[in-house]
Design a binder for these strands. Sequence first.
RNA 1: GGGCCGGUAGCUCAGUUCGGCAGAGCGUCUGGCUUUUAACCAGACGGUCGCGCGUUCAAAUCGCGUCCGGCCCGCCA
Length: 564
Amino acid sequence: MSDGSDDADGGESDVEQMSAHEAAAVDGADGADARDFWAAAVADEIEARNPDEPIVIKGGVSPSGVAHLGNFNEIMRGYFVAAVLRERGYEVRQVFTSDDRDPLRKLPRKLADVDGDIVGLGDVDAGALGRNLGTPYTDIPDPFGESESYAAHFAALLKADADRLDVPVEMLSNTELYEDGTFEDVVAHVLEHADEAREVLSAYQSKVDEDYVPFNPICGECGKITETVTEVDLDARTVEYVCTDMTVGDETIEGCGHEGTATLREGKLPWRFEWPAQWQVLGVDFEPFGKDHAEGSWPSGEDIARNVLEIEPPVPMVYEWFTLNGEALSSSQGNIVTVVEMLDLLEPEVLRYFFALNPRKARDLDISRLDQLVDDFDRFERAYFGDVDDESVTAFAERAYPFVVDEIREDRVRLPYTFAAVLGMTDDRDLRIEMARNEGYIDDDTPEWAIEEALERVDRARAWAVREDNAYNYRIQDALPEVDFDENVEAALDELADFVAAGNDGEAIQGEMYETARRNDIEVGDFFEAGYLLFFDQPQGPRLGEFLGELDTEFVVARLRRDG
RNA sequence: GGGCCGGUAGCUCAGUUCGGCAGAGCGUCUGGCUUUUAACCAGACGGUCGCGCGUUCAAAUCGCGUCCGGCCCGCCA
């Protein structure tokens, strides 16, 4: 526990630990800390319970076809609370349970392959999945034939995403917790107190009757989860069962009729008991969950924890679901987005920022307006460094920013996202830098690492512009676009071509464009538009003169003369 | 039918815990930078805080009612 092996900065002294705790106490006393960042308020609540260390923060989902961004609430919301507690000097263990002893109940329409790319059911062995309806995810082969099981495949995806966002989380398999006996005593306890269990649960679920047994064995014959327990032998720690049909929605998963005996490790608790059982065996102090649990599983779980398991439930936190492009996340409708996809478009810290925002608000992730999210992040970052005159943003940034970035470095350069997208018009690195320099984002004092990081945004913003095919999807046209100009515009273009051919630099070209337009009696705007059409096949573009100054002179001259 | 959460400027959101002048960024418009693009600078426009009633000297904030959206109250997670 205190061997320091996972302690990043090693020799932290007890004195410093003390002061961290004291500082936290001061923060808690005036309340400023908690008001400004939800994770700090949650941390206060956990702290108030004087938890044993390590403090355990849990999340978890049942494996499904795709690990989408919504699932990531289970990891990111806990991460921020863990980070605040660590800052206060506590040892924190963040775990994520893959609830993988759950049976596959229906076929997913979409799956994510090992790289996180989404594929349809038709691209995998769907028959093998269909035959395994009702079987625990850990006993179903990986449809991609790579991992040990369907469950392992799914867990690996989530773990890979957590790594991409640099969140240290320990993945736990529910099945393993059953098989290695971690759950066994709780299962025995629940079966021993089956009357109380039934009584408590029946307040939440009307279907619970006298025959209800809170344990579902796995059929020794067909391997499916069964629901019919006929006898419980507490001394032998076994149950007798019949493998009967299971109803899922309006579908029926057929049982094989086998009658057998199962140990308490060969089955699972129903979810309503399994969740509190996890709290007990893992010693969970905090758990965020989606609003779907808020009025169902949570109240019953809390009750079961106190009155059946006789433990104190963790500090809860409900998070709102977010929508994608205004629509509910839905894998069957195909309205999903993954961490991998998002990281093609955003830097990891921007995505982390998204999850640092108030969990109580339903939030829409509008891909077409990602520039707005990135602008918000940039402002949030500047606020941390005291450059924003807005108390509430600054207070939030002061608390949350250190947990959003991997490293606090004040002299970072952030190109505005739309400008970064515009720079994506060229793949020429030097040209990108030159244009950023022209606009004042980079100067001679900018360190090389900052330039490097700034340019990382260009590829992402470019990917966004292409994906959305929006106004920032500029690309230098290799071939002459179809154009049709007035005579005086053509004359002006020829004059400008001569000016460029004479070897003038970008700044001069920019100035000359105005002169040329005036000389030929055309609106400056029309002349610029002509230039944009020639080079981008679009009526808008970057600051043109300086841009042309960066390109190959022969190419520019030929294009201005409409020669290719 | 019962319950929970949300609804604040065109957009994205602070502010609601604990009542004290309705806020920010973006967008838009106007002007500026010898310069109509990305950006930058100055300014302006923009509000029935979903709606109604109540409490109060004072309500986005508290209470009651109501509308809209999501979720839960079967199974499952």
